[in-house]
Design a protein around this nucleic acid. Structure first.
Length: 581
DNA sequence: ATAGGGTTAG
């Protein structure tokens, strides 16, 4: 680059074309050698480019900054913005404090970048400080800044604060709505996310691709198929499905609503190029639905399509083998993974241990745990404990429980499993011992709950719930079910109930599990052919599984239950998991 | 004068 060629007016266009670090360095050297560095109007732009562009270099930006004798707020902000989007966003917050103490002081942009840093560093209390500061500085009418603020509150987990900012905003634009909707969806308040999405449409806004991502994610969480289908329709009408990211969200929504076929048809008819996430979402969809063969097929196909599987792809495929009962294929896949350059993490080990454990190959599962290069996590011991329970291996169950206690696990499920191992053997004294340990440690049962979507509304039930407006009819239906399945030859598996209470009471505990309440409500509320859909936060219980199979037969209806790990599709007395889960 | 905010799988 020749000095004479670069006059003041020519620097800006050069900056626009600057797409490499070398180029940045050349322009910087030029400014220095020509003595224009301290005063050139494009210096800040160069600094910003260096701090935030993917080809830039943040430490070089810091070096450049240090040479500036009197940095302007914009110079400060350039580095601040770089720090906020760097892998160490917390550094942005100390930098922000430096700006506050500098003669130039912060402006609205400084607040914006610092808040972005808070969002990424999950620094809630700093965000509240910046919040009060921006009010003092009189930025409260800046709705872009307020959108950033509400986003930080949502991301750091204070949805009430986010909602407050949103409600008080004098003007909003689509990004403000999007931040609030995705905030609710990601903060596990999917019902409110969907309600806000609908309100947005009522108020005449046209959702864009970011909006539907949040809304679809909410539908996925809830298993809200009908609502999800409406959004999918909108996506097609508005041609938002030209974006791969939107297609991915649609695929995920159908898969998590239990309609893997529908997910697959969207997958097959996509007009844009599939990304790694597309393949992974689809493989996971097949995994959740127990279709191991299809998952393995896709794992091969993606390579042909030029997309390299990553650790998530393999984990999903392994999980599919697990849920599909493809034990040999799963073990083979696991062995193959060791030589294909993908780093195995604790989840891969967890999955194969689970696979072997479920198949009753508990010794092999235990050997894998002992051979791991990293420390086993609680999940591994929990699957081994679960497998020991299923296969009645008391010794192994006790060993796994001991490990869990050593690791400080205070999860109720661990205690319940061990207790169930004893209960199945009628060792009530040991059951009592476990229950005592739970009391001492103040272990509480994570409450089980189930959802079902009826007429576009989500109905939630907890165990023994009597709060639903149709509670009377639901319980009457459960009585009828109880009567009809008894006549069919069913006997409750009461050895699964934790407490050594009377047989009849045990039956009642089981009878009013949340998933049974949701299924009963589904039965009295739907008359058409659509399957009853239930989403449960925990794993489905063995008794509920047995009962729902019979219900699907005697009521001639299809019932789809999504539990914590996978789908169960009940039809004509059998379940898609083939009782293997 | 202008800059800034919202994004899918595990």
């Amino acid at each position: 680059m020749h000095d004479a060629m670069v006059s003041q007016s020519q620097l800006d266009p050069l900056l626009q074309k600057c797409t490499s670090l070398i180029c940045i360095k050349q322009l910087q050297a030029h400014l220095i050698t020509t003595g224009k560095f301290q005063f050139h109007p494009s210096r800040t732009k160069l600094l910003e480019l260096c701090a935030i562009s993917p080809v830039g270099d943040l430490s070089l930006a810091a070096q450049i900054f240090r040479r500036i004798q009197t940095p302007s707020t914009n110079d400060w902000n350039a580095v601040l913005r770089g720090l906020a989007q760097s892998p160490e966003p917390a550094q942005a917050l100390s930098w922000y404090r430096l700006i506050s103490r500098s003669p130039q002081k912060v402006d609205a942009l400084s607040c914006s970048f610092a808040l972005k840093g808070c969002a990424r560093a999950l620094a809630f209390s700093v965000a509240t400080q910046i919040h009060s500061q921006l009010l003092r500085l009189g930025f409260e009418a800046d709705f872009l800044l307020l959108t950033t603020l509400l986003d930080v509150y949502a991301k750091t987990g204070d949805l009430e604060a986010a909602q407050k900012v949103f409600d008080k905003m004098p003007t909003r634009d689509i990004a403000s709505w999007n931040a609030m909707i995705s905030g609710l969806a990601q903060g596990s308040r999917p019902n409110e996310a969907i309600a806000l999405f609908n309100r947005m449409e009522e108020e005449g806004w046209r959702p864009n691709e970011v909006t539907v991502l949040g809304a679809l994610s909410a539908c996925s969480q809830l298993g809200a198929l009908k609502q999800g289908q409406i959004i999918h329709g909108y996506v097609v009408d508005e041609k938002l499905d030209t974006k791969v990211i939107v297609c991915n969200a649609v695929i995920d929504m159908y898969a998590k609503c239990g309609f893997v076929d529908k997910a697959y048809s969207v997958f097959l008819s996509m007009s844009c190029r599939k990304s790694l996430i597309t393949w992974n979402s689809m493989i996971m969809g097949f995994a959740m639905n127990g279709d191991g063969c299809k998952a393995l097929e896709l794992l091969d196909q993606m390579v042909v399509d030029g997309v390299n599987p990553d650790g998530v792809s393999y984990l999903a495929a392994l999980c599919a083998c697990n849920h599909g009962g493809l034990v040999e294929e799963g073990v083979r896949l696991f062995d193959m993974m060791k030589g294909c350059g993908v780093e195995l993490n604790v989840k891969h080990y967890g999955s194969v241990v689970d696979l072997l454990g479920r198949a009753g190959r508990i010794k092999e599962a235990c050997d894998i745990i002992n051979s791991m290069p990293m420390l086993p996590d609680v999940v591994l011991w929990q699957s081994l404990l679960g497998a020991s329970k299923t296969h009645g291996d008391v010794k192994m169950a006790e060993m796994a429980s001991r490990k869990l206690v050593e690791m400080g696990s205070n999860s109720c499920g661990d205690f319940v499993l061990l207790s169930n191992v004893y209960a199945a053997q009628r060792r009530w004294h040991d059951v009592g011992r476990v229950r005592e340990a739970m009391k001492i440690r103040d272990v509480r049962k994570l409450p089980g709950f189930s959802y079902t979507e009826i007429d576009y509304r989500i109905h939630k039930f907890v165990n023994g719930d009597q709060s639903h407006p149709s509670s009377k009819e639901i319980y009457a239906k459960l009585d009828e079910i109880k009567f009809r399945i008894k006549a069919y030859g069913y006997a409750a598996e009461t050895n699964l109930v934790l407490h050594d209470i009377g047989e009849e009471d045990k039956e009642n505990v089981l009878n009013y599990h949340s998933e049974k309440l949701a299924v009963a409500y589904g039965l009295i509320s739907t008359s058409d052919e659509t399957p009853i859909q239930v989403i449960k936060n925990l794993r489905i219980c063995v008794d509920c599984h047995a009962v729902i199979k019979i219900i699907s037969k005697i009521y001639n209806t299809e019932i789809i239950v999504r539990d914590r790990a996978r789908f169960h599709r009940f039809k004509e007395g059998v379940c898609s998991c083939r009782d293997y889960w």
